[in-house]
Design a protein around this nucleic acid. Structure first.
Length: 290
DNA sequence: CCACAGGGCGGCA
DNA sequence: TGCCGCCCTGTG
């Protein structure tokens, strides 16, 4: 990987095969990245607006600089990890086409609080709606950070800010029945941030049990939070798409928890990576009709 | 108008 | 312990 720094952009060469903006931002792990008319993606991380595109095998980060790259983007995009090695290790005869289809996926290192709320909202919900709700929350209760390509951007609201709202305020953001869960999360996290931000130091099992203390967090949502914000790559979130594809590809059936345990047995420490390739493939309409 | 998609909770066996 | 009805919104 070779990185070049310019006044307001950063270029990365040498990881083209393992960095595809569409795969990264459309594989269901994040909700604050939107595709621009030119095919690039713009999103908010912390209080920064970044635009990402790929031109002739060069990854271009627009609207940023060397300092931000080193302090934020290296970690956020998991750039220290060799995804070609991971793909090599998990590859079996059943996964060849599936990995090829989503070969540019990387698992982002996102903020625990934002991920917690985002995946509570994801329960019984579709990606378009989840994005809309998070956008509502950010526009109303986040802080304005700037305008890029004619659009205004806002931070994800802090726990204290959400905690100060009542359930009806949250329902106006189209959270629906999840409003009381979001309240519960904001209450617990604003009182004890340390608790949330130390979960990544626990084992996978302990962190999962702990995060499930929050109302609205069950096995699926908990596994998502662990995988997308706590570096727990043993995590294997099972939703309806994963149920379908695990049956089709591996003939593994059963309840979500049973599927998860069988998968973890096969894929071990790489479960989360495999889950992302499988989910992307299934959710992009590549499953066989039954 | 209705059917349906999509996780977790809580009540009841 | 396991199952089942309900929560909410948008789309077809």
């Amino acid at each position: 990987m070779k990185v070049s720094f310019y006044k307001n952009k950063v270029e990365i060469r040498g990881i083209s095969e393992e960095f595809e903006p569409e795969h990264i931002f459309e594989c269901g792990q994040c909700f604050r990245w939107d595709r621009e008319d030119d095919g690039s993606y713009t999103g908010v991380v912390q209080d920064k607006i970044l635009n990402v595109t790929k031109k002739n095998d060069v990854i271009v980060f627009n609207n940023t600089n060397q300092k931000e790259f080193e302090e934020v983007w290296m970690d956020y995009f998991d750039l220290d990890r060799d995804y070609s090695e991971i793909k090599f290790k998990i590859k079996d005869d059943k996964l060849n086409d599936i990995i090829e289809f989503g070969k540019g996926i990387r698992i982002l290192n996102q903020d625990e609080w934002e991920t917690l709320i985002s995946f509570i909202i994801s329960a019984n919900n579709r990606i378009l709606m989840i994005k809309r709700v998070i956008d509502n929350l950010s526009r109303n209760y986040g802080e304005y950070i700037g305008t890029y390509k004619g659009k205004k951007y806002y931070t994800f609201p802090r726990a204290e800010k959400i905690d100060a709202l009542n359930e009806n305020d949250l329902r106006l953001m189209k959270t629906g029945f999840r409003a009381k869960y979001i309240k519960d999360a904001a209450d617990k996290v604003s009182k004890n941030k340390k608790w949330l931000y130390q979960l990544k130091n626990l084992s996978y099992n302990s962190a999962l049990e702990e995060i499930k203390i929050i109302k609205g967090v069950g096995d699926k949502v908990g596994n998502c939070i662990l995988l997308f914000s706590m570096n727990k790559y043993e995590a294997f979130p099972v939703d309806i798409w994963m149920k379908r594809i695990m049956e089709q590809v591996y003939n593994i059936k059963g309840k979500p928890d049973e599927i998860r345990k069988k998968s973890e047995k096969i894929f071990g420490e790489y479960s989360g990576f495999v889950q992302q390739y499988l989910f992307y493939y299934a959710s992009q309409g590549k499953l066989k009709e039954k």
